[in-house]
Amino acid sequence: MYRGRYVVGVLISLVQITVLYYIWRAIMSGGQRHAGYDWPQMQTYLLLSFLLTLVLSFGTEERVSASIRDGSVSLELLKPVHYMTLRVTELIAALFVELLSVGLCLALFVSTVLPAVPPETGSRFLLVLSFLLAVALKATIAITTGVLCFWTTNVLGLIACRQALALMLSGAMFPLQMLPDWLHTVAYALPFQSFFNTPTMIYFGRVGTADAAGLVALQGAWLIALAGMTALLLNRGFRRLDSYGG
């Protein structure tokens, strides 16, 4: 049952990336550049998108929210650890399993269809940091979504909403430069671009080291803000639980 679910999860991601790949191949068949990317770069862009979309994607929110929805969250308080620590540890464990499968897909892709362009960045350190922060942000927002289940049981709705926003405004589907100016501004004001746009911009050397450092700092700021908000929500959630009787 679990094996099946996992395999289906990987397959769906593969279908998504394949569809995206052919759409972009059609768009770029004329040979012109889009948002400054040529075809080999765009292929690598899609690969990165695939990678970051897949990480922490297998029912992470469902898993995080499960204990809140079924009420066993109060029992988790019997363990001598903080709720967030418990969740983060679980996510890290899941990450290991996922990296295995993602790594496998990646190797398969790079060796067959997609010749990846090596990073053209000034700072390897910022690049790695921005990827790590992107993953940390994704984990945090998954926990935030899960914690919202103290107030609503509609976790699927919350996930769909989060996914739609992330898909359009993170740059995972197309580079943010292709958005109209006003939407571009909106995207940069929201946390989603920190999930994907920042690491890819640095990867392709689209920003100077100073700007890159600024974007990474922004990622860090979002991480702190979201984690703080989640901690606050969690606190309120537990107080609510307390007054309703667990």
Binding site: S74, L75, L77, L78, D242, G245, G246
Partner: peptide, 12 residues
Amino acid sequence: STTIKILTGLLS
């Protein structure tokens, strides 16, 4: 259950 939850720290 309320008593036991308070004694175990689950409820205030």
